[in-house]
């Protein structure tokens, strides 16, 4: 190997000075994911021109997308740093960075902040579909259905495509319009240009169709193996329960709760898990905390269920009414509602 020392030296030189990329040879090769590819070409561009605020913003937004499809939360911190850099270079009128910030805030379930970033993005880039998308997501979660609908229609008219069609599907679903939701997802599938996008559409179509318990077991076992997020753990746990494996199911619920307690996260999810599988008082604390932040169909459902398991079904009913007011007919939501109504009879 000493023979190749000059080579080694040259390599080291390249590694250390020419580009940080050389230290990570994988980067050039894992091009099969278009998002990853995107991130890499932005990185290359920024190595040449680190002053390019727009490229930093796009890199940040790409990391938010990557976090979503790979479930690797390290992308969130990368997104955050890239967006901070972009805003440092161009604090005003930096629409791309506002979009990225908003997407990141949505991903972290800080919907009020996401709404603010979304509004700034729309001001800076009035004809940009992604800016509208940030706003749609935030307003939906904050419970502003009318606002969300307006932003979504604008998004659809600006750019009919995967991003707007999948959001339309969700809108239809929340309004109990399942056929239209399916239609929108099919159009999204037709427009999809990457495998990740197609996977998302197919997954949602299957969710809409409903899965047999075997299918659910298989799908969620796979998902939990990749990314043990509390939501997947709960779904997997429920499937295990139905399959007559309560101990294994319990382990999933415990893991989800443990994670949420230790590392924090979404109080809404925590409330629902605690209500079914943990401590009712804790569930109510979580649900009330989230309701204080946002009054949406989701928090209304969680609060109604937490009240119910705390034997306060009469109070629960008004929140359950709110949860289904738009027409949302999610099986879990209906299960909660029936139990509440049943206990009041």
């Amino acid at each position: 190997m000493w023979k190749s020392l000059p080579l080694l030296a040259a390599l080291l030189a390249v590694a250390a000075c020419a580009s940080p990329q050389a230290a990570t040879p994988a980067a050039q090769q894992s091009a099969s994911s278009s998002l990853q590819h995107n991130a890499e070409s932005l990185q290359a561009k920024l190595r040449r021109t680190p002053q390019d605020a727009a490229a930093w913003a796009q890199l940040g937004a790409t990391h938010v997308e990557l976090a979503r499809v790979t479930f690797d939360p390290q992308h969130y911190s990368r997104a955050e740093r890239a967006l901070t850099e972009s805003l440092r270079l161009k604090p005003e009128g930096n629409g791309d960075a506002f979009i990225g910030r908003g997407a990141l805030a949505n991903a972290k379930h800080d919907f009020a902040a996401a709404r603010d970033w979304g509004q700034r993005a729309v001001t800076a880039l009035p004809d940009n579909a992604s800016a509208q998308g940030v706003l749609v997501d935030a307003l939906t979660q904050l419970g502003d259905d009318a606002g969300a609908s307006v932003a979504l229609q604008r998004m659809l008219d600006l750019r009919p495509g995967v991003a707007s069609f999948t959001r339309a599907a969700y809108h239809f679903e929340l309004h109990g319009r399942v056929d239209e939701a399916r239609e929108a997802l099919n159009r999204a599938l037709e427009s999809a240009s990457s495998e990740a996008e197609r996977d998302f559409c197919r997954f949602q179509l299957d969710e809409l169709k409903g899965r047999t318990n075997e299918e659910a077991l298989e799908v969620y076992r796979g998902l939990v193996a990749k990314a043990p997020s509390p939501d997947y753990l709960v779904k997997y746990g429920k499937a295990l329960d139905k399959a007559g494996k309560p101990a294994e199911a319990r382990a999933q619920f415990d893991l989800a709760l443990q994670q949420l307690r230790a590392l924090g996260g979404d109080d809404l999810t925590a409330a629902l898990i605690a209500a079914d599988h943990g401590d009712p008082a804790e569930a109510l604390r979580f649900a009330e905390k989230e309701w204080a932040k946002r009054q949406s169909v989701f928090t209304a459902d969680a609060l109604s269920w937490a009240l119910h398991v705390n034997k306060r079904s009469a109070e629960a009913l008004q929140y359950s009414d709110k949860a289904v007011a738009l027409g949302w007919r999610d099986p879990e939501v209906l299960r909660h509602r029936e139990a509440i109504l049943g206990s009041l009879r």
Binding site: M1, W2, Q21, A23, T24, A27, S30, Q36, Q43, R47
Partner: peptide, 21 residues
């Protein structure tokens, strides 16, 4: 480094032969 991606090397191919380490 924000401008490089995390390493994701799952396989290598190399040639070994008698010689210097």
């Amino acid at each position: 480094d924000l401008l490089s991606s995390p390493l994701d090397v799952r396989a290598v191919r190399f040639v070994a032969q008698p010689g210097e380490g």
